[in-house]
Design a protein around this nucleic acid. Structure first.
Length: 281
DNA sequence: CTCTGCTTCGGAGTTGGAGG
DNA sequence: CCTCCAACTCCGAAGCAGAG
């Protein structure tokens, strides 16, 4: 894959039909080009150094780094000269995500990537080793152990990312309508696909009109505006971090037509996607 | 030939009001 | 709290043209 076009890794090629997850131990000596998945990926760097570029943002890749990528993220791994990177790679689909975990992942806009310090890094590595051992020697109770271990890692990561701040009891704002929250999660998960208000409303359990009304009241912008914002965020990162043709970026971000993509892009960034790429290079 | 940008028009989304 | 309706707004598909 040398044409600058990110590869999309499909669940059917990496996950077994019978299982909601699969684990790999990877050894990387050469650059892994930009790609994304239609499954989730959680990794832990065991040894080696390099660069990890996620959604166009560069992170120092080193032992202790734990990351969790959703279907909306794309990334690239580049080992330093002469370095060999070893990592645990845990991939999974929706069915492993209980609602509370699902909400903690999709309820936030930030990236789930953190490099744990010495003792904490060892603890994370042990947790991944436990996952690895259980997945290699499946026996009674393995499912429970894997689920628990996986959730502990996610919770630890969420805590490190500072996304666990308790609600301020003095905060007078009304709590978010559960259906609006569901709709937000639906967008986070599906924005690269054809998303309609009707689908989101169906998922949230409200009529389309009422969801539209509640959405604007609680989020501050309309359903469509929010969806476009999410798509533009993804598209702008992809424009700057890949050589993918603008047309491909447009479709990859969930836009269905070039004119509309161009119009909304210009409205937000003040220039066309092509000009935006030139400015960034 | 490929990629990008523009125009047009039908259909989907938004919004406000009425009512259960 | 929620649905339904109607009027309005805006998105997206299709088609075409220009640049490289």
């Amino acid at each position: 894959m040398n044409n600058g076009s990110p590869e999309r890794l499909l669940e059917s090629n990496y996950l077994l039909v019978s299982s909601s997850f699969r684990m790999y131990k990877q050894t990387i000596t050469d650059r892994i080009e930009t790609h994304w998945h239609d499954f989730f990926e959680m990794g832990c760097i065991v040894s080696g150094t390099g660069r990890h570029i996620v959604n166009g943002q560069t992170f120092r890749l080193q032992p202790g780094m734990v990351f969790l990528l959703t279907t909306a993220d794309f990334h690239e791994l580049i080992p330093d000269e002469g370095q060999t990177i070893e990592l645990f790679d845990f991939i999974f689909n929706d069915s492993l995500l209980r609602p509370a975990i699902y909400e903690s992942i999709f309820g936030q806009a930030g990236l789930f990537i953190h490099t744990f310090a010495s003792e904490h890094a060892q603890k994370m590595e042990s947790e991944f080793t436990l996952l690895w051992n259980e997945s290699q020697h499946w026996q009674f109770g393995s499912e429970i152990i894997v689920q628990g271990s996986f959730e502990r890692i996610v919770v630890d990561l969420v805590r490190q990312m500072g996304m666990n701040e308790p609600c301020d009891p003095n905060d007078s704002r009304a709590p978010m309508h559960p259906s609006v929250r569901k709709a937000l999660l639906y967008i986070q998960h599906h924005f690269r696909e054809p998303v309609s208000l009707a689908c989101a409303a169906d998922y949230a359990g409200l009529s389309a009109n009422y969801l539209s009304e509640c959405f604007r009241k609680q989020v501050g912008i309309s359903f469509q505006e929010y969806l476009n914002e999410r798509r533009l965020q993804f598209a702008s990162a992809l424009v700057r971090s890949s050589d993918l043709p603008i047309t491909e970026v447009c479709f990859a971000a969930g836009f269905n037509t070039i004119p509309h993509f161009d119009r909304t892009f210009k409205r937000k960034f003040g220039c066309s996607p092509r000009e935006y790429r030139k400015q960034g290079s």
